[in-house]
């Protein structure tokens, strides 16, 4: 053991892309390309099922931004889901074709989430969670009173009826696929930016982050707005595929249960986790949906068990140190050192 520093020649290289991530990006591109042309090859029911799957995947991505990377547990993201659905309905009633209404509705939710964040951010931790829920309930109660949007009974979206069900299903599928890809890309870009780094530092230690000069409120707000915008994408997709809305189901807290389940099972705070979680959730739902409340009983029990015994989720357990990360989100230093003298 020497207390003197041995002269060391180091050869450091900073890399963002690894062999894994380059391969994964390649596979991802192929999968995306296959998904784009898929409607030409498979039947309508599979396409509709995939659209359903997309809406859950989008929800998981949106919730993971907030809780997994931002450390903020919300049980009120269904507010944006419902408002986006209703915004599409409103625009279609005013002559905007529903597919074109989709981006407007999503943008509207993103803007709306800014003032709401000022109210929600008065609360922290547990209180933030329930506070967001109350805000979602307020949205529900207000929307249920707007008679022109169907009131408590809901309304159906009629302007896509002039297309054949096949065409409508395919276009909606592509809209959904686009929202999925844009959501994934925007999350990846956020995480690679300074803001993303600041966000994760706040999640890990808010005080330390603030002390090192991170603008905590602004960073959290960016995550909140992005999450709201993504969840709005799911709301848009749900009304486009179900062609009807009803306040109690659009603003249902069950969506929060789904989001939490998917992200927890997949792996909170990992990029890949929500995708894994959404696949597990979708499979579980297809398998158990016929059994009524049983599937929610299992959902709740699994959420408890995963939190206690598998806190990193499936993906986090497969890849505990985030080494196999399939998406190039971080810089990595690889060092090859040669010690010239010393012990």
């Amino acid at each position: 053991m020497s207390t003197l520093e041995a002269p060391v020649m180091t050869n450091r290289t900073v890399k963002r892309y690894s062999r894994n991530s380059l391969g994964a990006l390649g596979i991802g591109a192929v999968v995306a390309a296959v998904l784009v042309v898929l409607p030409a090859f498979v039947g309508e029911s599979s396409i509709n099922q995939l659209t359903q799957f997309f809406s859950f995947l989008i929800l998981a991505i949106g919730w993971n931004v907030l809780a997994g990377y931002g450390g903020m547990v919300s049980i009120g993201q269904q507010a944006y889901l419902g408002i986006a659905s209703y915004a599409v309905l409103y625009l279609s009633l005013h002559g905007v074709l529903s597919w074109w209404a989709a981006p407007i509705a999503i943008a509207f939710c993103g803007v709306l989430s800014i003032p709401i964040s000022y109210l929600a951010f008065r609360l922290r931790g547990s209180f933030f969670a329930i506070g967001t829920w109350v805000i979602a309930e307020v949205c529900l109660l207000v929307v249920a009173q707007i008679e022109s949007l169907g009131g408590g009974a809901g309304a159906s979206l009629n302007d896509l009826n002039r297309f054949s069900p096949n065409t409508a299903g395919d276009v909606t599928y592509w809209v959904g696929l686009a929202i999925v890809l844009i959501s994934l890309a925007s999350v990846a870009l956020l995480l690679r930016s300074r803001v993303g780094l600041a966000l994760m530092s706040i999640r890990d230690d808010e005080l330390a982050a603030e002390a090192t000069g991170v603008n905590v409120m602004r960073t959290k707000r960016i995550a909140y707005v992005l999450s709201a915008t993504i969840c709005a994408g799911a709301g848009v997709l749900l009304i486009l595929s179900n062609l009807e809305v009803q306040p109690n189901s659009s603003f249902s807290v069950q969506y929060s249960a789904f989001m939490i389940f998917m992200v927890l099972v997949g792996g909170m705070g990992t990029f890949e986790g929500p995708i894994v979680g959404a696949i597990v959730f979708f499979a579980l739902q297809q398998w158990l949906a016929a059994n009524g409340a049983w599937y929610l009983i299992i959902l709740g029990a699994v959420a408890v068990a995963v939190t206690l015994w598998l806190p990193r989720g499936v993906w986090g357990t497969v890849d505990p140190r985030n080494r196999r990360s399939l998406v190039p989100l971080r810089h990595r230093v690889s060092v090859s050192a040669t010690v010239e003298s010393g012990e």
Binding site: I75, I260, G292, A293, G300, A301, A303, T307
Partner: peptide, 22 residues
Amino acid sequence: GELSPLLVTFGLSIFIESALQQ
């Protein structure tokens, strides 16, 4: 972990509500 009690009790809530419904 910090978020775990929230997540566990939310899971418990879903569990109790759906079990009662069943």
